Simulated scan of single mutants.
Amino acid sequence: MMKQGPIGVFDSGYGGLTVFKEIVQRLPQYNYIYLGDNARVPYGTRSFETVYRYTWECVQQLFALDCNLVVLACNTASAKALRTIQQNDLPLYDPFRRVLGVIRPTAEVIGQYTRTGKVGILATQGTVSSESYVIEIHKFFPEIQVYQEACPLWVPLIENNEFRTPGAEYFIRKDLENLFAKSPDIDTVVLACTHYPLLKDIILKYLPGGVNLISQGELIADSLADYLERHSDLRACCSLGDSRQFYTTGAVPEFDEKASLFLGSAVQSAPLLL
């Protein structure tokens, strides 16, 4: 059996902390390491090859920190890098380690939320261009119509703590109008970027009444709990305890300040050089 180690959670920046928070709340018995690639954010506008390379570099860093299971709490990384890592890299690097994403767990349950069969996706340009949500949702619910809207400014606004400004609100309202112009019958909207839950209050101001707004944190946490329940060998390789470690490729003081806002509690991180 492999050496026990913490569960790794990766994101291009801070957004994955919204998923990290829900996972820890759902599965508090395990040790965790969070890694934010803040030095190279945002991923959403980068090429497939670049996102894959950055993601695989960070996954290997988490493996080096003894993580046997890594969750890509980043939709862009899940869309552009996950399949290559799972199919090409892991069999050669270590076939017993696992890397999971956030798109499939969302697609598996989206049919429970929509009545009209029309679902909206708010995401980065990279996730939208990949068509990953369209493909995955149609695997489980071929009858559902999926409408996507890229929101290229949302992540930079959040990462720079500018999302509570009138200018930010203008872009959020405009992107929502663009989405519903594609179909006024959309009754379920997925925040398909883990940064976006921080904008939930603003989004709700401009969301039509009766529309479901889906954040991924709880869905991913429930999916991970189910995955570990079904894979007892991997579950046995996840170390138990209350250790919560944070690493960033960017500036530590800035990460600690902003991460504390995402988590609602103080964070002390360590630098990680790639």
Rank of each mutant, 00 (worst) to 15 (best):
M1I: 04
M2L: 13
K3P: 07
P6L: 07
D11Y: 03
I23N: 03
Y32P: 02
L35W: 02
A39V: 08
R40I: 03
G44T: 01
T45L: 08
V51Y: 06
Q60C: 15
L65W: 04
L65H: 10
N68M: 12
A73L: 02
L82M: 01
R83N: 00
I85D: 00
L90N: 12
Y93L: 14
Y93F: 15
L100W: 10
V102C: 14
A107I: 02
V109M: 04
V109Q: 09
Q112V: 05
T116W: 07
T116K: 13
V119K: 12
V119N: 08
T127W: 04
V128D: 02
Y133R: 02
V134P: 03
Q145H: 15
V146H: 14
P156L: 11
P166H: 07
Y170E: 08
K174D: 10
L176W: 00
L176I: 05
E177D: 08
N178S: 15
A181Y: 14
S183P: 09
P184G: 11
A192Q: 10
L198N: 02
K200I: 03
K205D: 07
I214W: 15
Q216D: 09
E218L: 06
A225Q: 07
D226A: 10
H231V: 03
H231N: 15
H231F: 08
R235V: 00
R235Y: 06
G241F: 00
A251E: 10
F255P: 14
F255W: 03
K258E: 10
S260N: 03
L263S: 12
V267H: 08
V267N: 08
L273H: 15
